[in-house]
Design a protein around this nucleic acid. Sequence first.
DNA 1: TTGGACATGTAAGCCGTTACATGATTAC
DNA 2: GTAATCATGTAACGGCTTACATGTCCAA
Lengths: 194, 194
Amino acid sequence: MARENKTRFAVLGLLSLKPMTGYEMKGIIPKSVGYFWNESFGQIYPMLNQLANEGLVTGVEETEGRHHRIRYTLTDTGHQALRDWLAVEPEYYSLRDELLLKLFFGKETEVAVLRGHLEKALASSRRQLAVYQGIEAELKAIINPRTQTRFSLITVRKGLHWEQAQIEWCLESLAALPPVLQPQEAEPQEPHPQ
Amino acid sequence: MARENKTRFAVLGLLSLKPMTGYEMKGIIPKSVGYFWNESFGQIYPMLNQLANEGLVTGVEETEGRHHRIRYTLTDTGHQALRDWLAVEPEYYSLRDELLLKLFFGKETEVAVLRGHLEKALASSRRQLAVYQGIEAELKAIINPRTQTRFSLITVRKGLHWEQAQIEWCLESLAALPPVLQPQEAEPQEPHPQ
DNA sequence: TTGGACATGTAAGCCGTTACATGATTAC
DNA sequence: GTAATCATGTAACGGCTTACATGTCCAA
């Protein structure tokens, strides 16, 4: 029980980058942690309110004849809460990989279907790899890197390793699967395992 | 909208291996799809009832002086539902990686904390890699492999690639992080980005 | 004047885990 | 007899996504 709400710390972490509004946070996510962490408005706004009630952040309304917006800042307590959480060993995440599930039950379908899935995954990983390579180049091109750059680079490198592994595995699996045969020379069906 | 319930197809897929009870299913998962897919009793039993109501599976009570148990079998309709789902392009899964989140906010904590996380992850991946290598060896040692063996091998190979990538990335990141310094020679703090 | 971006929030509803409830059988 | 395993479920709770509601400001 006592399941911890991770959104909490994602929000605190983002506020540690700089004070921002909920709307800005949602916009910054795809450019920062979005490759490995996501949050929706439905969680950001209630969480910001909750954190404000608990004194971990302070919200300041900016209503100078413009949009009604609330800019949140980490308090010392909030900063310490973030630090405490950072020191806790991260929980391994229980993944749910639909591609693997479909491949595992592969004998129930045609090889062509599986090859199609693998080729889509391969193309997707190649695209994503290029994206990460671009980000990596950008980060490395910064003349006077901040400390943040170093940590951004570490997370991007994870993406690079991950996509490279996915690409290798896709190619290997495509090679391991029998080619798509013409109907008249189709493999005889094996009986289901009992 | 219209969010599809994936548990549905995991259950159908497992029943395609052989007819089984809900309890058996829960026991078989860790030895089959458990490395990339999990289900709890709280989902398995209601789903089996639902699938039976829809005619995708049939449940036969076995009450021969023993435990009350219900063994479920795929119907033709259920088998076709599985095949239809297998042909649909798998959705990419939105991962949530707590280790990456902590590393991304790494400037808020000590390098020693981050090194600790990475070393734990490294050790964990090395253990898991050995597990996958064991399974791979077992699968390859089967003299007359069934079709299922081929697909099990493909999913295990994914695990191997994944863990190897994780290990490489951990080592690289540990090398990239500054060593843990003594307090008197600590790096000067950079200001927060604005 | 109308559409899009800015901006904050709530409600519905499903998903998933955990704990609880119940009871039979088997091994010690 | 008692604990573990077999066996099926339900209930509570929280997480997360999506849709909805509301309103401002600005540019074409």
